[in-house]
């Protein structure tokens, strides 16, 4: 078990390292921040640009800049934003909770919707209800999440005027973005719950549970759902990356002050330290969740460890 943990941990570290390297290399190909900073500032000489580069440390070779970034990373310092000089950690500390609230709410929405629907479809396998649930959940995977976001705004904010369309106006602002992200995830999860339940329901202990006269609700939710939980937990872990990535676009539609908005603004401003910081935090988050899932999985199912 210790060896398994060490190996998984080393792999996770490698992944985070590789991601930061790719991103800091890519981000420096993407144009000159000195030019971006001086846009609209009137007459700018070549000397001014050189001075700005010097001040931002952009004149140094790439490997020096990257090593500096790594050193800071271990010290909990991600550098300062090129725009206004705010420490990146401060910006992220503001944006990350907003994104996490959104991600967790979306997960909750999708779990609450997906489990009963998926179980229903599995129980009625092949029947009309199953077909409707399957087709509708497939349809739910078939439009872009930002379009659903726009449609939500159209219906609930513009037509019905129930909910604020964007920004942060108290807790009601959370409803639309969380529902949007949650509904998209539900579509995928319903199919997953259905598949996992179908497999479990054919097991003999389910037949036993039914034979001894347990209520169908107890059989489904206590016996079958528990035994289907492992593949579900794993998949929620894998999904986490996709969920977070989807939030980037949803945040933009709702003007949600989270990591996605921070990243998009950083790209348009060529704000390397911010973008680098955001992507690193995302990578650590995703790798961390997957690592946690793997460890839980390894604890629950001893066969995985020996692989």
């Amino acid at each position: 078990m210790t060896l398994f943990l060490i190996r998984r941990f080393a792999q996770a570290l490698f992944v985070v390292f590789a991601v930061t390297l790719i991103v800091s290399w890519a981000v420096r190909l993407s144009g000159d921040p000195a030019v971006m900073l001086t846009q609209g500032a009137g007459s700018v000489t070549e000397q001014d640009l050189a001075n700005i580069r010097l001040a931002l440390g952009l004149d140094r070779p790439f490997h020096v800049q990257y090593l500096g970034f790594l050193k800071g990373l271990f010290a909990g310092d991600l550098g300062n934003s090129f725009m206004g000089g705010t420490p990146v950690t401060v910006l992220i500390a503001k944006a990350l909770p907003a994104t996490l609230i959104l991600a967790v709410s979306a997960l909750l929405v999708s779990i609450v919707l997906a489990i009963p629907l998926g179980i229903r479809a599995a129980v009625k396998r092949g029947g009309a209800e199953d077909q409707v649930i399957r087709i509708v959940s497939l349809a739910g995977l078939s439009f872009p999440n930002f379009w659903l976001a726009l449609m939500m705004v159209l219906v609930f904010s513009i037509l019905l005027k129930w909910l604020p369309p964007s920004g942060w106006d108290g807790p009601t602002s959370l409803i639309l973005p969380a529902l949007t992200a949650g509904v998209i995830n539900t579509a995928a999860n319903v199919r997953l719950v259905r598949t996992a339940m179908l497999e479990t329901l054919s097991a003999q202990y389910i037949m036993v549970a039914r034979a001894k006269g347990l209520a169908e609700r107890v059989v489904l939710y206590k016996h079958a759902l528990r035994n289907s939980a492992i593949p579900l937990i794993t998949y929620v872990g894998i999904q986490f990356g996709g969920l977070v990535a989807g939030l980037v676009v949803i945040e933009r539609v709702f003007n949600w002050p989270g990591m996605g908005s921070l990243a998009l603004d950083a790209v348009s401003g060529r704000d390397y330290p911010v973008l680098q910081g955001v992507v690193t935090v995302f990578a650590v988050l995703i790798v961390g969740v997957n690592l946690a899932v793997d460890i839980v999985y390894g604890l629950v199912d001893p066969r995985i460890r020996t692989e």
Binding site: V23, A26, I238, G242, V248, A263, L264, I286, N290
Partner: peptide, 11 residues
């Protein structure tokens, strides 16, 4: 797995 496409793409 750790680098969502959309982040790669916007970069």
């Amino acid at each position: 797995l750790a680098l969502p496409f959309i982040l790669l793409a916007i970069t």
